[in-house]
Computed example of a mutant assay.
Amino acid sequence: MTYEFDFAAVLAYWPLLLEGVWTTLRLTFFCTVFGILIGAFCAVVRTSGPRWARWIVGLYVEFIRNTPLLIQAYFLIFGIASMGFRLPIMVGAVIALTVNIGAYTTEIVRAGIESINRGQLEAAECLGLSKMQTYLHVVIRPALERVYPALSSQYVLLMLASSILSSVGVEELFGISNRIQSDTYRNFEVFVVLGVLYLIMAVVVRAGFSVLGLALFPRRRKLGTPL
């Protein structure tokens, strides 16, 4: 039995594929921004906040990291809707991914914060820096600089993990591919094209993080440290 490949039938749907790529990149962008903000805040709370706040953040981190993203997405999109709080599908998708990536970002940034030498904090205090200035310039910025490669990789994985949300009705790239499969019956060709597109997006997103890292952390650029 022979199989004749027909990529032209799949590539004829390039407008839909581009729409899926755009949706995936938009999800990645918004979740990256919100995820880093949530992760940095929770990391600060978990390292130096009051005990009750550390306990709440710890519970959030452990719950999210030990439950599947798909279940979290179902709860936020369908579970809340069943209680009368209806969210647009894209808003629910952004919230689900942000809540998920925020927990992982918290642990990565916490590792960076805990790597800061105590002597630097004492030096900042001797210089008369306020607590806010100390956290921004002596703690958070150096901590993010140290863990930036790990954060970059985590957010590339976030972009790839967004394909899971096709199961809850989000028409990102993987969700669009399901429509193309049902129209063309060319499953193999669709997945080949899909794999190539995800590979290209991963390279583009990683390159974007590298450029951003060069802008945010000039010292790494001067030292030639990989981002």
Rank of each mutant, 00 (worst) to 15 (best):
V138T: 10
A103K: 01
M132L: 13
Q120D: 04
A124S: 07
T105C: 09
T134E: 10
V109D: 03
T106H: 06
C126A: 15
Q133H: 09
Y104D: 12
L136H: 09
V138P: 00
Y135Q: 10
A143R: 06
E114C: 12
Q133P: 06
K131S: 11
G112F: 02
L127E: 05
E107S: 03
R141D: 11
T105M: 12
A103P: 06
K131G: 06
K131T: 14
I116H: 00
A111I: 01
T106F: 04
H137V: 03
L121M: 14
L127C: 07
C126K: 11
A103T: 04
A111E: 05
L121H: 15
G128M: 04
I140H: 06
V109R: 06
Q133K: 11
E125W: 14
L121Q: 13
I116M: 00
M132D: 14
G128I: 03
C126S: 15
A143M: 06
I140Q: 12
T105E: 15
S130K: 11
V109P: 04
R110P: 03
K131P: 06
A124F: 11
A123W: 10
A124V: 07
R118K: 15
T105P: 02
I140D: 02
E114I: 09
G119E: 03
L127P: 02
L127Y: 09
K131Q: 15
E114Y: 10
K131C: 08
I113A: 00
A103R: 02
R118L: 15
S130N: 08
L136A: 13
E122Q: 04
G119C: 06
G112Y: 01
A111P: 11
M132R: 12
E125G: 14
A124R: 10
Y135C: 07
I108A: 01
I108S: 03
A124K: 05
V139Q: 08
A103Q: 02
I140M: 14
T105N: 12
L136W: 14
E107F: 06
R141A: 11
H137Q: 12
G128R: 02
G112Q: 00
E122P: 08
V139T: 07
A124Y: 05
P142M: 13
E114G: 11
V138F: 01
I108F: 03
L129E: 05
N117C: 10
